[in-house]
């Protein structure tokens, strides 16, 4: 039994004027510890898929199961990272990284120590008593990572977490997130528009087509590259080749639309 099972998932958004089918018949299995990326044109339903996997809304049709349990009951197993950090501006950094623990009524000495240790590992302990607006974008996104990991989720959902950052910060954070997740043996799903990022970070890349969102193809990254840090992967000779294949595929999709 796979760690995450998405079974024949279809999701439509309703308004009084219209129906938008965002996803159609998505089936997908992810093993424990695996890192999977979603690539696809804008509006193909990637965020919708992550929201469904996070149990934020019930799917129109189909099921999502984590370790054979329906996701609606699995909130404490999931961590979610957004395109922007969404740190609460009225809370200090420390209060921000404890928020998940507080919500889940798990705020005790041990969990606090764990969160603060994470903060230290990411070289951010000096920000504890500061407010988010006093920090740079890259620091804030690292804090958001700490906040997400503080509740010790087993499955991480990352919705374009690096896209609002400058290139250099982004490359550094890719390495950091990759290493942190591997170290804690997390399973992760990453949504991105950056083909290179998808290849560099993942074990598998899933390409979606739009209107409605469907799985177009699945690319398994060679095991040699899977083990490397993202920055090294970008410099590997096989990288270009895989990039080219996916690039052409995405171009075809654009022509079809």
């Amino acid at each position: 039994m796979a760690f995450l099972t998405v079974n024949q998932l279809t999701h439509a958004y309703f308004s009084t004027q219209s129906v938008t089918t965002a996803l159609e018949n998505i089936s997908l299995q992810v093993e424990e510890g695996e890192f999977v990326s979603f690539l696809g044109p804008s509006g193909c339903g990637k965020t919708t898929l992550l929201s469904l996997i996070a149990g934020l809304m019930p799917p129109t049709i189909g099921t999502v199961k984590i370790q054979n349990e329906n996701v609606q009951k699995a909130h404490n197993q999931i961590g979610y990272m957004f395109q922007q950090d969404y740190l609460f501006p009225w809370r200090t950094i420390e209060e921000n990284i404890f928020i998940g623990l507080k919500i889940q009524h798990k705020l005790d000495k041990m969990s606090k120590t764990f969160a603060l240790d994470l903060l230290e590992q990411l070289n951010l302990e000096h920000t504890r008593t500061k407010y988010p607006h006093e920090l740079s974008g890259g620091m804030r996104q690292r804090i958001a990572l700490v906040r997400t990991l503080a509740t010790q989720p087993v499955l991480l959902l990352l919705d374009e977490p690096f896209s609002a950052l400058d290139y250099q910060t982004k490359l550094k954070l890719e390495n950091l997130v990759f290493n942190t997740l591997k170290e804690h043996q997390k399973t992760a799903l990453l949504v991105t528009h950056d083909i290179g990022e998808a290849i560099a970070m993942s074990d598998r890349v899933i390409v979606f087509s739009a209107n409605p969102g469907k799985i177009k193809s699945i690319h398994t990254i060679p095991s040699e590259l899977q083990k490397m840090e993202p920055f090294e992967v970008r410099n590997h000779e096989d990288y270009k080749h895989i990039f080219q294949t996916i690039w052409e595929e995405l171009n075809e999709l654009e022509v079809e639309n």
Binding site: A54, I78, G79, Y86, I99, Q104
Partner: peptide, 21 residues
């Protein structure tokens, strides 16, 4: 901002917690 609400919801927060936090 819906995204702040979503942050609380991803941690499994209920409506009361969304209001408080």
């Amino acid at each position: 901002d819906q995204n702040y609400i979503k942050v609380i919801e991803t941690f499994g927060g209920d409506k009361k917690q969304v209001f408080q936090e």
